[in-house]
Design a binder for these strands. Structure first.
Lengths: 420, 420
DNA sequence: TTGAAAGCGCTAACAT
DNA sequence: ATGTTAGCGCTTTCAA
């Protein structure tokens, strides 16, 4: 509720009918300073009450309702012709207005549904818009309103199968609310990352979801200073303009370990992701801790990378340990798939000789042979939640961030079985 | 509505004056169902605040749900009238100019390196820019110059592993030239597609790469009429503002067939992509024609879809044909992987019992077990070429399109072997 | 309900 | 080499 109210306050969006209602209220209460009013129409339309506060303050309602006589006659309009200096612009609103015999303002109002316009006028305008195939110019709009309807989504590498579903979740959520998203891949490159951040600021995005570990809090400060909301993954805690989403690997990992223990395994290895990756480290630590707690020697523990052939060399190391483990926990499905390939090369049967557990549940996990037992990360939800987090935070008056949590869970397939 | 009103009036906090006002409002709006009204007085006094929340939660607002909010926001600070009407602009060029003691034009020239500026002036400007952490506003720039540095990339579904690398190729090429890209997924949805096209036009993109078969030439005419360059995949021929990229499946398919024939296969089946997909049809036709040419009975020929479990039912059909084929050509790797899973389920050994060939060479093809023999489509190149095509076309005075061709080639792995 | 006019922040002639 | 000025197309008061 509270956040709802704040969202009300920030939108500053006043549909027409209420304008009229507002006038009534205004005149009625003109003597009462400090009156704030909020109007909400259905779940969608919201009127800012802080805005109204502004109004009240600004105009102080000097008995506005009484029509003043002898109002100043404005000098007539210049009505100069808009000439387009050879640029390949489409039609402009002015042209539409002229053709429809109304003012540009009216066209704007029709197109944005910000005021009630007489049915007849509206019809005429829309007709002309259709005839001329007029499309409004987003940049002009953004400039005029001072706000953009863009969000940024920063990932490290689109080729990593971890991301597509997350992107989809984010984009779908954004589109649903009428926002566009600018997708940026850092490609793990510092220079590129820098320039991405600049681009995002220049593009005046409202918020940015940073879904890669290759950007840390400090790098995001530029965004925050620019008043842009940011949401991070697996970094706490929230603060002003900064929300976080934490994926709780714990639960899934615990389930996985129980599963493995239940199958009689006494010794498991870990192939973690790269050591310079926040998330990978979190996972590794959780894995090692969990394993120790259940008295499985997590040996060896190897760090790998997220390349698609990751794990191959790690597997060699594992197979050559004296105390050969009967299960391998992998820091990602990609690593697991790589490991499985390598294991097969080496003649180790999965799961007869060695069980393999992945993390993520990428779409190929179940197409692997044997289908991969893995810890599912709700990637689409992560994306959607990231957007929600931004959207919600930016509606708060103080734009204070929040921490979100998402669960993981074990998906048992056929890459795990009882220990030899 | 009614109950809300009641709840307000029942709070007992309602001073008579407002009661009266409330009555007016009630009568005024009683006809508008779904309208909710909250009244807040001054900074301190709040009417029906919590109650209103309840109501909203119950009736209109589908409770936020996801997570616990960081720290609860304070009861609204009330009287704060300071509200920035949605504009969170940073500094402007004018400000920079003033601070640096030059004109805005000079700042612009420095930042864009469009004119020689005295070293001293430039230094001063850049210093101020640094100090103020000034970022220029892309929208204003786009408006002023009348051109945007945006390109659109339309795909059907980001979750399809065919796309990520293509996206990467396109984006990388665009970024290299300083352009941004707006990525849009149609999700095979007509309405969505429509709105994407509109969005792209409104965003004044320079060009659009349409990499999905779910948009055809006619749908693109809107773009072209708006002066936006378009590049299509597997559609000929080029025309003004329309370039095409054709992936020559022929060659790869021929190689694949030679390969299969060379292995002694006499009978092959085909599992093609969906029948409503241009590319899928092209591939199917090429496959069937090629097979016939080499006297392999392409039987059965089945159409499938691009879902990840595609091919499962097709496999059943194939296994039940009397003249059981010893090889299966699949319209995509995804289909092939699905088919392989299904074959294994059915107890058919790959490749001993049946050879499988895919198309695309998605990154998982070589992680499949057995690694998939497939026809590689240079997806990254497709993306990069799409951008090139647009960029080049738009530089031409007549903006005449061109046709580009990309080759495919067979990649032999272990899912194919000699016929039984 | 509608119109007129003043910008939004930047660039690009045209001056100097 | 730098300043002035006039918009780009749209939204948004304010006025009617």
């Amino acid at each position: 509720m509270r956040s709802f109210m704040q969202s009300v306050s920030e939108t500053g969006y006043l549909p027409p009918l209420y304008q009229c209602w507002l006038n009534i209220v205004k005149s009625f209460f003109s003597s009462l300073s400090g009156l704030l009013i909020a109007v909400v129409l259905g779940p969608e339309i919201v009127i800012g009450w802080a805005r109204i506060g502004n109004l009240l303050a600004e105009s102080a309602f000097p008995a506005p309702s009484i029509a003043r006589e002898g109002s100043l006659q404005q000098s007539h309009s210049g009505s100069r012709l808009a000439f387009r200096g050879g640029k390949r612009m489409g039609h402009t609103m002015r042209e539409v207005a002229k053709r429809a015999g109304v003012s540009p303002a009216t066209v704007s109002r029709v197109l944005n549904k910000t005021h009630y316009i007489s049915v007849e006028t509206e019809r005429r305008v829309l007709e002309v818009v259709g005839q001329m195939k007029y499309f409004k110019n987003v940049h002009a709009r953004r400039l005029a309103t001072g706000r953009s309807d863009l969000f940024g989504l920063v990932i490290s590498e689109i080729a990593n199968p971890y991301f597509p579903e997350m992107i989809h979740g984010f984009q779908a959520a954004a589109w649903d609310r009428g926002f566009d998203v600018l997708l940026c891949n850092t490609q793990y490159d510092q220079a590129r990352t820098k320039s991405i951040l600049r681009k995002l600021i220049e593009s005046d995005v409202r918020g940015v979801a940073v879904m890669t570990s290759s950007i840390d809090r400090s790098m995001a400060s530029e965004l925050i200073e620019a008043g842009i909301g940011v949401v991070f993954c697996n970094v706490s805690p929230a603060e002003k303009l900064l929300s976080t989403i934490s994926i709780d690997y714990q639960r899934g990992i615990e389930q996985a370990i129980e599963h493995i223990v239940g199958l009689g395994h006494r010794c498991a290895a870990v192939i973690a992701g790269p050591d310079d990756n926040r998330t990978a480290i979190t996972i590794k630590d959780a894995l090692v801790a969990g394993l120790k707690k259940r008295d499985l020697h997590p040996l060896p523990v190897i760090s790998s990378n997220y390349r698609i052939d990751a794990g191959a060399s790690a597997v060699r190391a594992i197979l050559s340990t004296p105390d050969k483990p009967t299960a391998i926990f992998c820091g990602s499905d990609l690593i697991a798939l790589g490991a499985m390939s390598a294991l097969e090369e080496a003649g180790a049967g999965i799961p007869e000789d060695i069980s393999v557990i992945g993390i993520d549940d990428i779409s190929f996990a179940f197409l692997a042979r044997p289908p991969l037992t893995t810890i599912r990360v709700p990637r689409e939800r992560v994306g959607a939640t990231a957007f929600e987090a931004l959207d919600r935070m930016l509606k708060l008056k103080r734009r204070k961030g929040a921490d979100y949590y998402l669960e993981t869970e074990l998906v048992i397939r056929r890459s795990t079985t009882t220990a030899r």
